[in-house]
């Protein structure tokens, strides 16, 4: 074989190798693909994540397992993902708010920043509402503030730091004097409201059934937009509070993953999210619709979200 032929053969081999790596359609995870869920078993993130993993497995034929990696609302799981070799065999599923707030409040202690990841997409936006007992003597946030001022502070049940931060903004701006009762989850918020120990609290979807039953009512949407099931209820921002919470369920992988792998994973997720099966579980578990922002949209959502959290919570 002449030198020329050798070079040509090498070039051809390299071309094959490169084109092979660059083609998302051919990429498949080497071994098991893990979907790590940043929360414990049985919650809404876990429920959705497990079904998404199952649908992806059926669609792609890859061996996919879902595993729970709880800790700090996803911080522990994403720390692990940021610091593992980018092989494209682990996808993280978490919620943006706890991650963003920890980045703002103690970013120097975290093992990652927003640039530690490649983003794949989102499942949807959690619908967070400020709710109250049906017999509470107020119907809007303005009335609730006035009532709280006049009556030794309304007690509000909350189960995650962003909810408390949001209402602290209200306290700062209007001296509403709200008191905060920390709980272990949305169900406990509802229990305390039904039991009459607190008058108001936060709900992330499960409260809708109680509104239908006439036990609870909605005071405001904590998101930046009104909720589809209660379009007449104003948002916290519309009520004059310069803050909102938009919790997104999102997927990310380690920065520097082979672009072909990232593309293949993103496509696989997109296909799974487009199924009726996933749409149904998202509706059931989080009372919301599938809303996949895609690769660029998710990154923008995280970057803008970080600025939002910084500005709004005075980090």
């Amino acid at each position: 074989m002449t030198l020329k032929a050798k070079i040509a053969a090498l070039a051809a081999a390299a071309l094959v190798a490169v084109s092979g790596a660059a083609s998302a359609a051919d990429w498949a995870p080497s071994g098991t693909l893990k979907l790590q869920i940043g929360f414990g078993a049985g919650g809404s993130t876990d429920t959705m994540g497990r079904v998404i993993a199952k649908v992806m497995k059926e669609q792609t034929g890859w061996n996919i397992i879902a595993e729970n990696k709880p800790g700090g609302g996803g911080v522990a799981m994403f720390t692990g993902i940021a610091n593992m070799p980018p092989k494209g065999n682990v996808i993280g599923m978490g919620v943006n708010m706890p991650v963003l707030i920890n980045l703002v409040k103690r970013g120097d202690q975290l093992g990652f920043d927003l640039d530690s990841f490649d983003y794949l997409g989102t499942v949807g936006r959690a619908q967070l509402a400020l709710i109250a007992r049906a017999d509470a003597p107020f119907n809007t946030l303005e009335e609730m503030i006035a009532y709280s001022k006049a009556n030794d502070g309304v007690a509000i049940a909350f189960d995650a730091p962003p909810q408390k931060l949001l209402m602290e903004v209200v306290n700062r701006d209007s001296e509403a004097d709200f008191r905060f009762v920390s709980t272990k989850g949305g169900a406990e918020n509802i229990k305390l409201m039904l039991g009459g120990q607190v008058m108001a609290g936060f709900g992330a979807g499960t409260h809708v059934k109680y509104m239908e039953a006439g036990d609870l009512k909605m005071i405001a949407s904590a998101n930046d937009s009104r909720h589809a099931y209660a379009p007449e209820i104003a948002t916290v921002r519309e009520a004059g509070v310069n803050a909102y919470l938009d919790p997104f369920f999102y997927f990310a992988i380690t920065k520097g993953t082979d672009p072909a792998a990232a593309e293949a994973l993103g496509k696989a997720l997109e296909a799974a999210l487009a199924t009726d099966e996933v749409a149904e579980v998202v509706r059931n578990a989080a009372q919301t619709d599938v809303e996949n922002l895609g690769v660029d949209g998710t990154k923008a959502m995280m970057t803008d979200g970080l600025e939002n959290v910084k500005v709004l919570f005075g980090g």
């Binding site: 414990g40 078993a41 429920t47």
Partner: peptide, 27 residues
């Protein structure tokens, strides 16, 4: 009766209800 899970096991049963489109709650 109220849709409130009392333990992790009960929370998982809620999760199973939700997968099947049944929203636990007062109704």
């Amino acid at each position: 009766t109220l849709g409130i899970p009392g333990s992790v096991g009960a929370a998982l049963i809620i999760s199973a209800f939700m997968i099947h489109g049944i929203q636990p709650g007062p109704l």
